[in-house]
C-alpha cells in the first residue's frame, strides 16, 4: 500500500496554491490528509501533484463576523471542538464533531478538507447544508462564495474546480430562536454512519419554522428531506416520517440495505425532532 509516484509542493500563499493547482490538471490540495492519504496509499487516487496548504496564513481563523461564524479551511476538527465561538454560535457543528472519526483523526483532519472531500456519509457537509451555510472559494478568477445547497453536486463532487482552493466555510450564527438537532447511527463509534441527520430550525410561536433536515449516508450527497421539513413545520411528525419515503432513496451498501437505512432515517427524524422541540423554552 504505497502511493503511486507524485510531486509535492508546499504552497507559499493561497494565491500560490491556486496557481499551482491550476498549472497541473491532476493536482490535489493536501490539508489534514485524513482521507486523501488513504486513497493515495490504496492507489484509488493518483494525482501528479500534491499542493500542501498546511501552515498558510489566513486559513486557520475562527471568528464571528457580521452575524456569521467563519471557519478557516485549516481549522482542525479538534480545534473546532474546543472552540467557544463554535459552541456558542454554531452548536450544531459542536454537537457533530465528537462523531467524526477518532481523536487522532480529529487532531489532523480539517474542516475544509471534510467539506472539499464531500464524503456523502460525513457529518460536516450535512451540517453545512442544515445550517444553510456557504463556502468561500479562492480560484483562478478570484474569490467567490457558493451556497451549501448548491455546493455538493455528486458523489465526492463539488463546485470546486481544478484550480480552486476552499478557503473557509460560513454559517449563520445561532440566536435565541435557533434550534438544532443531530443524531447518527454508526455500528462502532467513529465509523461513518449508516444514516445520520443534521437539522436546524427557527422557533416560531409553538412551532418551528425554516426547518432544514440534512441527511447523510443516504445518497451521493447530503440530502435535504424537503417534504418531511414541510410536514414537520406543520407539527405533523408522523407525516414527516412517512414523507421520508419520498424524500430519501438510500442505496444498499455493504453494511445495510436501503430499506433498513430508510427505516433508520425515520427513527432519527423522531429523535432529532425531539431535540429541536426540546431546545424551545
Amino acid at each position: 500500500m504505497k502511493p503511486a509516484p507524485f510531486a509535492y509542493t508546499k504552497a507559499r500563499s493561497v494565491e500560490h496554491a491556486v496557481e499551482l493547482a491550476g498549472r497541473d490538471g491532476e493536482a490535489r490540495i493536501l490539508a489534514g490528509g485524513q482521507s486523501l492519504i488513504a486513497t493515495l496509499n490504496m492507489r484509488l487516487s493518483r494525482p501528479t501533484l500534491l499542493v500542501d496548504i498546511n501552515g498558510l496564513d489566513g486559513l486557520d481563523g475562527l471568528a464571528l463576523k457580521d452575524g456569521a461564524v467563519e471557519i478557516g479551511a485549516l481549522v482542525r476538527h479538534a480545534q473546532a471542538g474546543r472552540s467557544d465561538i463554535i459552541a456558542k454560535n454554531a452548536p450544531l457543528i459542536a454537537k457533530a464533531i465528537p462523531h467524526i472519526g477518532h481523536p487522532a483523526i480529529r487532531n489532523r483532519g480539517t474542516i475544509g478538507g471534510s467539506i472539499a472531500f464531500a464524503d456523502p456519509a460525513a457529518e460536516l457537509p450535512a451540517c453545512l447544508v442544515a445550517l444553510g451555510g456557504e463556502v468561500v472559494i479562492a480560484g483562478g478568477r478570484g474569490e467567490r462564495t457558493v451556497k451549501a445547497d448548491d455546493f455538493f453536486t455528486g458523489l465526492f463532487e463539488t463546485e470546486l474546480g481544478s484550480d480552486d482552493v476552499l478557503k473557509a466555510i460560513r454559517v449563520p450564527a445561532a440566536n435565541a430562536a435557533t434550534r438544532i438537532g443531530f443524531a447518527e447511527l454508526a455500528r462502532r463509534h467513529g465509523d461513518y454512519a449508516l444514516v445520520g441527520l443534521a437539522a436546524a430550525a427557527r422557533a416560531e410561536g409553538d412551532g418551528l419554522a425554516d426547518i432544514r433536515l440534512a441527511y447523510f449516508g443516504v445518497g451521493a450527497t447530503p440530502v435535504r428531506a424537503r417534504k418531511a421539513e414541510a410536514e414537520l413545520a406543520r407539527g405533523a411528525l408522523d407525516d414527516a416520517v412517512a414523507a421520508l419515503a419520498d424524500d430519501l432513496d438510500p442505496p444498499d451498501d455493504v453494511q445495510e440495505t436501503g430499506a433498513v437505512k430508510r427505516h433508520l432515517a425515520g427513527v432519527l427524524l423522531r429523535r432529532v425532532a425531539k431535540q429541536l422541540m426540546e431546545g424551545r423554552q
Binding site: M42, R187, R188, H189, G190, D191, Y192, V254, Q255
Partner: peptide, 16 residues
C-alpha cells in the same frame, strides 16, 4: 470480497 478493508470490515473496538 466486498469489504476487505478496515473501514468496511468491522473489528470490535474498545468503545463498544
Amino acid at each position: 470480497l466486498l469489504n476487505g478493508n478496515m473501514a468496511d470490515y468491522l473489528v470490535p473496538m474498545a468503545a463498544e
